[in-house]
Amino acid sequence: MTSLELFSAIQNSGLGVFIGKQDRMLWAVAQIIHIIGIILVLAPIVLISLRLFGAGLYQQELPRLAYESSRLIWLGFALLAFSGLLIFIPAALHYHDNPVFWIKLYLIAAALFIQLTLYRVITKLEKPNPWLARLTAVFTLSLWFGVAFAGRFIGFV
């Protein structure tokens, strides 16, 4: 099955047709949930990056800060996935033709990979190597900022 056939099947599925028939304001509500999800993911990552750079909350223990803010990140992911699917499913074919949509998908995959590996390991350490800490912050920040940027670009391509 090609990706085009898959996206076509998604859009023409019962769920795709059902969501597509709803009022346009449902789409606006999904977009609001999406932006709240983005803030819930980006804000903790900015905060932990400041800590990794030693530029903010540097007297605080890194693992504790990371643990407390990870709850916001996962809540953000859940909101993003839910609202993102709500936006994507009824218009899958429209997104299939959009190159920025694919860039966003790859960036999400890369960002999640770093999140579950490098970020997770480094933020569990009391005193990570300072350069490794900075590298983690730069990777995590640029990938998630890239995802947000790509998301804003989709509508303009």
């Binding site: 803030i39 605080q60 504790r64 947000a148 670009f153």
Partner: peptide, 29 residues
């Protein structure tokens, strides 16, 4: 895109302060 990233820094970090003040997050900070 820059407006959105500015939002994550401004409103995002401010939310952490607010959540600390109301006692939901970072109570030990």
């Amino acid at each position: 895109g820059t407006h959105l990233i500015g939002l994550a820094l401004s409103v995002g970090l401010l939310f952490f302060i607010d959540l600390r003040l109301v006692g939901i997050l970072f109570r030990n900070v």
